[in-house]
């Protein structure tokens, strides 16, 4: 069992949890993830690591309650325990393995979308520790969905917020903002790291390809074990099948087949709809006659 030492609401339905996992806190590196199981009957849920501290033994994760399993997870409070917390999984971020002098010569831009800010934060923090302050664009629906702003501002160079509704910072998509910075504001970047919804990463990559900027993405594919056993997370990169869990989660964004990756994320959509319905309406357990789930097999 892994105790939740701290739980904080960051935005509607988005929580930060600091979990007691001393071994992981000691070995985690930016870019890695954990697999979390809430309880006995729970799913194995991959979640990126947001922060870790070997002194306190705490590992921070950010959970957005969107699916039935994440909704169960956020019901837990401080002092409660998660059944399982496994990691650190996946490869550390490419940045964490690069030569520091080479890294210092690069101008780096992070583009985060929604809860994608969570895995971006440890990378910014790592770079800041080396004396490198990277720029960052964070996009969200509106101001109240913008997470970890103060934390990121403290360890980044320029911080550019963007919201869909214009309630904070730039009004529009992160790609519009990025293009504005490059085209009109004279900003030059050697590397873009983008983490967020697949569709956002796809369009960031499209844009950076146009400008010839190397771009790294971190994929959030469907997984079961997270150690290379199931192959659910396979993705086509440069025409080759790769496993996100053990060969990623970072890949060269210009080589990723995003259309396939997005399609593969929908595999269990209809099963999920059934589960969510049950969760929301416990009286109707097992009866789906009143709802139209479209395509439920």
């Amino acid at each position: 069992m892994f105790k939740i030492a701290e739980k904080k609401l960051l935005a509607p339905d988005i929580y930060l949890m600091k979990v007691e996992a001393p071994r992981i806190a000691k070995t985690a590196k930016p870019g890695q993830f954990v697999i979390v199981i809430t309880d006995e009957r729970g799913e194995r849920i991959p979640l990126t690591i947001c922060d870790y501290d070997s002194k306190t033994g705490l590992v921070a994760i950010v959970v957005q309650a969107v699916g039935s399993s994440t909704k169960e997870m956020v019901k837990l409070n401080e002092g409660d325990s998660l059944r399982d917390f496994v990691g650190p999984l996946g490869n550390p971020s490419e940045l964490a393995n690069m030569d520091i002098e080479a890294l210092k010569k690069e101008k780096i831009m992070f583009v985060a979308g929604g809860v994608g800010a969570a895995p971006v934060y440890p990378q910014l923090k790592y770079l800041h520790g080396l004396g490198i302050d990277a720029d960052v664009i964070v996009g969200s629906k509106s101001k109240n969905y913008m997470i970890l702003e103060d934390e990121m501002r403290a360890v980044s160079g320029n911080f550019y917020p963007a919201t869909d509704d214009g309630s904070y910072g730039f009004k529009g998509l992160v790609t519009n903002l990025l293009e504005d910075l490059i085209k009109n504001k004279g900003k030059k970047y050697d590397r873009v790291v983008t983490i967020g919804p697949m569709i956002m990463m796809k369009f960031v990559c499209k844009l950076t390809k146009k400008y010839g900027i190397k771009t790294i993405v971190s994929l959030n594919s469907i997984m079961v074990d997270g150690t290379g056993m199931c192959g659910a997370c396979r993705v086509t990169v440069g025409g080759k099948t790769r496993f996100t869990c053990v060969e990623g989660p970072e890949f060269d964004g210009h080589l990723v087949d995003f259309d396939e990756a997005m399609r593969r994320q929908t595999i269990y959509k209809s099963e999920e709809a059934v589960k969510l319905h049950r969760q929301n309406d416990p009286q109707e357990k097992g009866c789906f006659c009143k709802i139209d789930l479209g395509g439920v097999k």
Binding site: M229, C230, G231, A232, R234, T236, R264, T266, I267
Partner: peptide, 12 residues
């Protein structure tokens, strides 16, 4: 076509 939706490993 092996990465189409509906193709799984036996392990999965």
């Amino acid at each position: 076509g092996e990465n189409s939706n509906g193709v799984f490993s036996a392990n999965e």
